[in-house]
Design a protein around this nucleic acid. Structure first.
Length: 481
DNA sequence: TCTGGGGTCCTAGGACCC
DNA sequence: TCTGGGGTCCTAGGACCC
C-alpha cells in the first residue's frame, strides 16, 4: 500500500481556498503514572519504577528501566514482589489525585496546538490537524510540529510524550508504536516511506481495536499482521466478526471511521467499586463498603450535574475464587435523583438480595460495588403519577459537598458508612476489613495544601533547571535493594 | 403437511479499550 | 494469604406486541 498521490491537479474551492486534508495527531505519554511519580522525585530518573493498581494488586505502569528488567504488565504484585525487591525497583501505590491533575495540565498544553482536542484517556489524546496535500514539504512540516508538541508538553509538565500524525486514529496509533523506541519519538506517518513495511511487520494483536480473541482467529484466517488485516475482504469481516473490526480495517487503509469527539458523549452509567482489603462474609461489613461506594457515586453524580434513575448493588468473589460467585440486585428509584441519602438507602437495601442470589454456602467476597444507571441531567425528573418522588435535599447535599471540599471526605458521611475511627482508617490508607491497601502511596503533591513539596531556599546550588532542589516529604514508597 | 412477520425493549454475554 | 477499576459498543435471544 503506497501513499496515493492526489488525483489530478490542485482543485480550488470558492474564494480560492485550497482544499486541505484532515489529519489526526496522537499524543501518548508512555509510562504516564511512572512519569508522574518521578516528577517530584527527580532522584528517581533513570531508576526502575512501577506503579500498582488499587489495593496494591498488580503492576499497571512500568518505567522503561522496569520493563528492561522483564517486569510484566498486569503482573500480580505478590508474585513479582521478591524480584522487584532484589532488583531495587521503586514501587508506588496508584495516586489518582496526582495523575488526574497532571493529565489536566497536559491537556491544556495540547489546546494550544488545535481547536479540536479529544481526550481519549488519562494519558492519551487526539488532535485534529489540517495539511495541504499538494505541498511536497507537508510531511516534513508536520514532523516538526510533532516535535514542537512534545517539547511544549515537556516544558510545561516534565512529562515525556510520543506524537504521531496520520490520516486516521488507528494509523496514528500504529505510528506511535513505530517510534516507541526512537530517540525523539515523533513522526508524521502520513506518506511515511517506511509505512508499508511497518504494517507488514506489525502483529495483528498490536493493532488498536484487535484484542487477543480476534487476533487468534485472524491468525488462523491467515491475517497475522496489520497489512494482512487491511487486505481482508470487507464482507468476510462483517460476517465473521462485526462492524467494529470492519471500522478498524478501513482505518488501517486510511479511511477515517472514528471521528474526533471533542465533547465526550453523555455518560450512561457510573460504577464505584473496590476490592476489600481481605475477604468478607459478614453482611454488616459488606453493607458499610456498599454505603461508602454509594455515597461516592452520588457525589460523582452531583459533580457532573447528573441524576440516576436506578441503583444496582453487586458483590463478587473475584475471578480467581472457586467457586466463582457474583451476586447483584437492582432497584428503580421512584424518581431520578443524586441525593446521597436516597442512593445509600437504596444500595444498602439491595445488599441482602445481592448476597442471597443463587448460591449455597457463604462465599468469601472480595469486592462490592454500586452501579448507577438511567443517568440524565439533574433537576429534570418527571417523577410518576402513582408513586411519591424521592425526597430531595439539595441544600443538605450542597452543604455536605462544601464540608467535604474544605475538611476532607471523611468529615461528614452517612452513618451507614461506619464509625469515625473506621472512616479515618479508610482515608489514611489503612485497612479496616473493607478498606483498600495502599502501602506505597506518594503525597498528593499538586492537589492538597498539606502535601505540597517544599523547596529549601538556603540551598540554591541544588535548585537546578531540573528542580533538583525540590525536597518532597519522603513518601512511603518502597525500595528494598 | 404444517407452525406469519415484523417491530421494540430488555438482558446477558462477549469483545474491546486504558 | 496475596490477581484493579471503569468504561463502551455490539450481538443474540427472549418477551411481548400488533
Amino acid at each position: 500500500m503506497s501513499a496515493p498521490m492526489p488525483p489530478g491537479p490542485p482543485r480550488h474551492r470558492g474564494g480560492g481556498t485550497r482544499e486541505t486534508r484532515r489529519l489526526v495527531a496522537f499524543v501518548d505519554a508512555s509510562a504516564f503514572y511512572c512519569s508522574c511519580e518521578r516528577l517530584f522525585r527527580p532522584d528517581l530518573r533513570g531508576e526502575p519504577v512501577v506503579v500498582l493498581s488499587n489495593n496494591d494488586g498488580c503492576v499497571i505502569a512500568r518505567s522503561a528501566e522496569a520493563k528492561a528488567l522483564g517486569v510484566a504488565m498486569g503482573a500480580p504484585y505478590f508474585q513479582v514482589r521478591e524480584r522487584l525487591e532484589r532488583a531495587g525497583v521503586w514501587v508506588f501505590s496508584s495516586n489518582y489525585a496526582l495523575y488526574h491533575d497532571l493529565s489536566d495540565r497536559l491537556l491544556r498544553v495540547l489546546d494550544r496546538f488545535s481547536p479540536d482536542v479529544e481526550r481519549y484517556s488519562i494519558d492519551e489524546a487526539f488532535l485534529g490537524l489540517r495539511a495541504d496535500p499538494w505541498d511536497p514539504d507537508e510531511p516534513a512540516r508536520l514532523e516538526t510540529l510533532a516535535r514542537e508538541i512534545r517539547e511544549a508538553v515537556w516544558r510545561a509538565t516534565r512529562i515525556p510524550v510520543r506524537v504521531a500524525i496520520a490520516e486516521t486514529k488507528t494509523l496514528a496509533k500504529v505510528g506511535s508504536e513505530f517510534v516507541r523506541h526512537a530517540p525523539v519519538p515523533c513522526v508524521c506517518f502520513w506518506r511515511h516511506p517506511a509505512r508499508d513495511a511497518v504494517l507488514e511487520s506489525l502483529p495483528v494483536e498490536d493493532v488498536w481495536g484487535v484484542g487477543p480473541r480476534w487476533a487468534k482467529r485472524l491468525r488462523l484466517a491467515g491475517a497475522g499482521t496489520a497489512a494482512g488485516l487491511a487486505a481482508m475482504d470487507d464482507g468476510d469481516i462483517r460476517r465473521g466478526y462485526n462492524v467494529v473490526l470492519l471500522r478498524t480495517t478501513l482505518e488501517l487503509r486510511g479511511v477515517s471511521c472514528l471521528p474526533l469527539s471533542e465533547a465526550p458523549p453523555p455518560r450512561r452509567s457510573l460504577v464505584r467499586s473496590r476490592m476489600f482489603g481481605e475477604p468478607l462474609t459478614d453482611p454488616a461489613l459488606i453493607g458499610k463498603a456498599v454505603a461508602m461506594h454509594a455515597a461516592a457515586a452520588a457525589r460523582m453524580l452531583r459533580r457532573e450535574s447528573l441524576a440516576a434513575s436506578a441503583v444496582e448493588t453487586f458483590v463478587t468473589t473475584g475471578r480467581h475464587a472457586r467457586p466463582v460467585h457474583h451476586g447483584r440486585a437492582v432497584t428503580e428509584l421512584p424518581s431520578a435523583t443524586n441525593d446521597t441519602l436516597a442512593i445509600v438507602r437504596a444500595a444498602r437495601s439491595l445488599v441482602g438480595p445481592a448476597l442471597a442470589t443463587g448460591h449455597g454456602g457463604a462465599p468469601r467476597y472480595k469486592k462490592a460495588g454500586v452501579m448507577l444507571t438511567g443517568l440524565g441531567p439533574a433537576g429534570q425528573s418527571q417523577g410518576s403519577l402513582f408513586t411519591a418522588p424521592v425526597r430531595e435535599r439539595p441544600e443538605l447535599m450542597e452543604a455536605m459537598d462544601r464540608i467535604a471540599r474544605r475538611f476532607g471526605r471523611a468529615a461528614v458521611v452517612p452513618a451507614a458508612q461506619g464509625t469515625p475511627d473506621e472512616l479515618r482508617a479508610v482515608h489514611a490508607g489503612r485497612s479496616p476489613a473493607w478498606g483498600m491497601r495502599r502501602d506505597f502511596l506518594s503525597p498528593r503533591y499538586t492537589t492538597v495544601w498539606a502535601e505540597i513539596p517544599t523547596v529549601r531556599l538556603g540551598d540554591p546550588a541544588r535548585l537546578g533547571a531540573e528542580a533538583e532542589g525540590v525536597s518532597p516529604r519522603s513518601g512511603p514508597c518502597r525500595r528494598t535493594a
